[in-house]
C-alpha cells in the first residue's frame, strides 16, 4: 500500500514527513506515471491556481480525476480542498476542480495573510482537540446531504468527509499531529 503526495507545488514535503512518520510508504506524484503506483493520494496546501495549471500541463488532471471516480481515497488540505470541491467561488475562471466532494468553497474566505490563524478544534472521533493552522484558508459555504462534517469554526465546516474523500480548510501537516492523516490511512486501507 502506497500513498502519493501531489508534488507539483506547495507544502508537499510536510505531508510526506507526517505520512512517513506514521509508517506509510510514500512517493511524490509529478506525472501520470507516478500515479499508477499509488493507492491513495494527498493534495497538499499551496497555491490552487498554480497547481490547477500544472495539473493540466502535466497531464495529471485527467489521470487523477479518473482514479477519484474509481474510488481512490484522497485527502485535500487547503488548496487541496479547493481542488476537490464541487464549486469554487473567487477562483480563476480557468481553474478546474475535481468535483470529488459535495461542497462549495470560497478561496481565501477567511481573509488575507494577516487574518491567518491557529485554533484548537473539536474533531468528531478524536478525543483531544486538534490544533488547526489556517493560512489564507478557504471557507466552506455549502455542504451536500452526503457530506459528514467532522469539525467546525464558528459554525462553518472546516473538516469534511464524503466516502473516500477527506478535505480540510486547515493544514494538519503543519501542526506536528498525525491523527488526521492516521485516520485517513486507517479508512483508506481498511478494506
Amino acid at each position: 500500500m502506497k500513498v502519493g503526495v501531489l508534488a507539483l507545488q506547495g507544502a508537499f514535503a510536510r505531508h510526506l514527513k507526517v505520512l512517513g512518520g506514521l509508517g506509510a510508504a510514500t512517493t511524490e506524484v509529478r506525472a501520470a506515471d507516478d500515479l499508477s503506483e499509488v493507492d491513495a493520494l494527498v493534495l497538499p496546501g499551496g497555491e490552487s491556481t498554480t497547481m490547477s495549471m500544472l495539473l493540466d500541463s502535466s497531464g495529471l488532471h485527467d489521470a487523477v480525476a479518473d482514479r477519484i471516480t474509481n474510488g481512490m481515497p484522497v485527502l485535500g488540505t487547503c488548496a487541496g480542498m479547493i481542488l476537490l470541491a464541487r464549486h469554487v467561488a473567487d477562483g480563476r475562471p480557468d481553474q478546474r476542480s475535481f468535483a470529488a466532494i459535495d461542497i462549495d468553497v470560497r478561496r481565501n474566505g477567511y481573509g488575507r495573510q494577516v487574518d491567518s490563524f491557529e485554533a484548537d478544534l473539536d474533531v468528531t472521533g478524536l478525543e483531544d482537540p486538534f490544533h488547526g493552522v489556517f493560512i489564507r484558508a478557504p471557507v466552506v459555504e455549502w455542504v451536500g446531504d452526503g457530506v459528514e462534517v467532522l469539525a467546525t469554526v464558528d459554525g462553518r465546516p472546516v473538516l469534511c468527509r464524503q466516502g473516500a474523500v477527506v478535505v480540510a480548510s486547515f493544514h494538519p501537516e503543519m501542526s506536528g499531529d498525525g491523527r488526521i492523516h492516521g485516520r485517513f490511512l486507517d479508512r483508506a486501507f481498511a478494506a
Binding site: 507539483l8 506547495g10 496546501g45 499551496g46 488548496a79 494577516v114 493552522v133 493560512i135
Partner: peptide, 17 residues
Amino acid sequence: TGTQLVKRGLAEMLKGG
C-alpha cells in the same frame, strides 16, 4: 493570529513556486 507558525506557514505554501 500573527503567530510564527502561520507566518512561516505561508512561506511553506509558496515552496516549489
